[in-house]
Amino acid sequence: MIKSLLFNLAQSGIYTSPVMNWVVTAFSVLLCLFISPTRLPGMELLGVGPNWLLIWVVAWSIRRTVWQGAIAGLVLGLIQDGMTAPHPTHAISLAVVGMLTARIQKQRYIQEDFISVALIVFGMAVLAETITAVQFSLQGIGASAYAAHRALAEVWFYHQRIALSSAILSSLWAPVVYYPLNRWWQQTNAVEPSQT
């Protein structure tokens, strides 16, 4: 019933208009933004929640070009800067995640199912936290001894803890973002046809 309704809507062209497509995409980003500061029960591991923006960037870039991935990562990174603290920036790690996800030769190595998406998110979450940790370390080296900064040993100790828990949680929750978004983009043909 609903499926046929959706199909009719898709046929009538409301669905396929690019404006509608961008509205839905922006709305999904907004949802990810709103869910980031919440800690719903069952979503926490050692006080760390899933990295929703990272999941979104992976879901976006998985069937797009490197440039599209990079720009999406940049945009979401800047927004996350605004929501937490701008130094060090989140834009670098998310842009790298977007580029790498788009770059992976998925046709050859990985099939596009839930498990492989979860695996990509796992790897990318570890990578993103590592990039942030490197930025914190550089900041610490540049700062004077008594200015407010994080000690090198503390940064990397903390990195181990959050990289693992964030990667596990993000990869478990990845399908929640990936499945509906990918379904939508496939229906509207917004994603690039898979290249060989």
Partner: peptide
């Protein structure tokens, strides 16, 4: 308190 930090590195609440 309506929200926690939006990433893992900062200990913030909203």
């Amino acid at each position: 308190i309506i929200g926690r930090s939006a990433d893992h590195w900062w200990q913030q609440v909203t």
